[in-house]
Design a protein around this nucleic acid. Sequence first.
DNA 1: AATGAATGAGTGTTCATTCAT
DNA 2: CATGAATGAACACTCATTCAT
Lengths: 195, 195, 195, 195
Amino acid sequence: MKQNKPKYKQIIDAAVVVIAENGYHQAQVSKIAKQAGVADGTIYLYFKNKEDILVSLFKEKMGLFIEKIEGETSGKTKAADKLYVLIEKHFSLLSEDHHLAIVTQLELRQSNKDLRLRINDVLKGYLNVVDSIIQIGKETGEFREDLDLRLARQMIFGTIDEIVTTWVMNEEKYDLTALAGKVHHMIVRGFGSSQ
Amino acid sequence: MKQNKPKYKQIIDAAVVVIAENGYHQAQVSKIAKQAGVADGTIYLYFKNKEDILVSLFKEKMGLFIEKIEGETSGKTKAADKLYVLIEKHFSLLSEDHHLAIVTQLELRQSNKDLRLRINDVLKGYLNVVDSIIQIGKETGEFREDLDLRLARQMIFGTIDEIVTTWVMNEEKYDLTALAGKVHHMIVRGFGSSQ
Amino acid sequence: MKQNKPKYKQIIDAAVVVIAENGYHQAQVSKIAKQAGVADGTIYLYFKNKEDILVSLFKEKMGLFIEKIEGETSGKTKAADKLYVLIEKHFSLLSEDHHLAIVTQLELRQSNKDLRLRINDVLKGYLNVVDSIIQIGKETGEFREDLDLRLARQMIFGTIDEIVTTWVMNEEKYDLTALAGKVHHMIVRGFGSSQ
Amino acid sequence: MKQNKPKYKQIIDAAVVVIAENGYHQAQVSKIAKQAGVADGTIYLYFKNKEDILVSLFKEKMGLFIEKIEGETSGKTKAADKLYVLIEKHFSLLSEDHHLAIVTQLELRQSNKDLRLRINDVLKGYLNVVDSIIQIGKETGEFREDLDLRLARQMIFGTIDEIVTTWVMNEEKYDLTALAGKVHHMIVRGFGSSQ
DNA sequence: AATGAATGAGTGTTCATTCAT
DNA sequence: CATGAATGAACACTCATTCAT
């Protein structure tokens, strides 16, 4: 398994650093190799081509991301609590990894359509977690019965993603994780004054 | 004012078509020139460089977009009604312009950080409309007093944007405008069952 | 017609020089461009890719070659005389163009199968001239009636080509053209002594 | 002697197969190693470098080739008969070894000048056989006294080689060996009608 | 104003060879 | 003897921009 060889992870971590610090279009393979401390050619012993590095990067990092979030949400029973944990964890995980936040929110989005389609595939794992939370909420009566699953999922992901992206673009000047409560409340209770 | 000369608009419209049909990275200046029916060099009499075409494109189209939405929302008194109109109009305007939808939702996002910052500047006009609706809602008591303006804005924009992007990626297979009501309800009332 | 533009010929002539002096595998596009006094990119305004330069080179040069030989042979009536002129002209034309001789006899043969097939296509023009001479000879009774056209053609071309190649590999140390008479005699009369 | 170790021949035979099936430029050392059933590095225990494989290949195969032809020709007394046997054997040996025919006639010619010079060295053994036949013919009066040894040799080799190459390029669709008689007659008696 | 020929900087990938095990 | 992971040099081609006409 190539995934277990140390150089595989070494190169992926190097790619995150290089992309975060130089931008997507300035992340040449030779720069990644140098950062990883290997020769250019060595990259191609572990990855089919440059795109494969980027997809693998996203898979590895997003895989861990989803795992952690799944682990945390499974500790809660109520859908609303699960949702809170998801938001809070999403924010905190990216707050803790400056480079990864830049890469996933800004740089990787500059990739071409093919790459973005493959990235979206990986994202499906995350969206499945979201879906199951909504489903549970509907079943327990916490959420409206007539809630549209797809739209609800898109609202949750769209809101979280937009908030994180703005935070990254603002150079992470404020405490993202601290916003989790308010965001959670907006999603669950909406804008309306409680009457 | 160059903006009033016929070739200015001609080139921008050509850019929309070329980018929509070929993708951002295959939208060479020479292709845009050909589509516009002018020589390559002529482009540079109206635009400083390629980036300038894209920013101008976004400004022109988004300007019209904002104008129309502002016009429609001003016809409503209540914040919730204004918000509904904004969502409905946002969906319908993009539904009506296939090329523009592809360009703004998919292709232009592949641009580099600089260009995206300038695009965000243009977007501020739209976000101001959103802000004023939220503000009105808070003042009239329609919306919660403690609603965080920035977060609310990000939720509205993030939700709408994610829904439109998914719709475009799904090749616009379903009726986007028909979703306005549900989306509006989710935003204003949240997921919670009405108690 | 691109073929009439001065830079087209300029680049082809540069390619002949560069290949002759550096060898096929050391004839980089940038070297050819430099020799031609144009920018690298200019090459691609006149040629589809590197292979296209080489095929065009062969077409142009071999085209002239065939034209001249056809012109000279048509001045003779008897097949044997035509054949003599063909051999003599073949030798003298390559004797006069040192660079071309190296390129066609040694360097261009290092190309891959695809390119060689396209080169063979061009050669067909030359072989047609040979064929028509043999045909005439057979019709006039100068040559044996049962002479196999294909084999005779291959003997003529194989002999001439081998002699020229050896001469080029020996660094053109002797007078090639002076050999025409003997070669002609060997082909027409064979090795046999008195008949 | 490395030449006697089993892996030496194993690698050479692998090279013939790989070059014949993939072409000269697609015959990577790693592919040859795989075909030979050894590790890449093992190649370098038996050969100085890649070029050495090819030269050795040519030496081994051409050595056998010359041996066989020498053996057969020595069984004849008259020069013309020896020449016939040489042509017939040359054709039949290559007809029997499809891979070798492709490698010697098409693929190995794509090598660079250095390699071709070393290949020519090996070829000298073959040309010496040809020379001795011509010499004998001149001495016995079978061939013209004033026959130019070098040109006669080049005619014989050039003719045979061209005929074989064409046959290989035509995917060996016809019986090559059957042509020996006609070719022999053309060389010895020429094109002229016997009067 | 309009043209379009010319420019030239920039980069992913292959593969012969080495050498520590 | 044998291995095979690691090396790193080398190059065709694109395309935004310019400027002489």
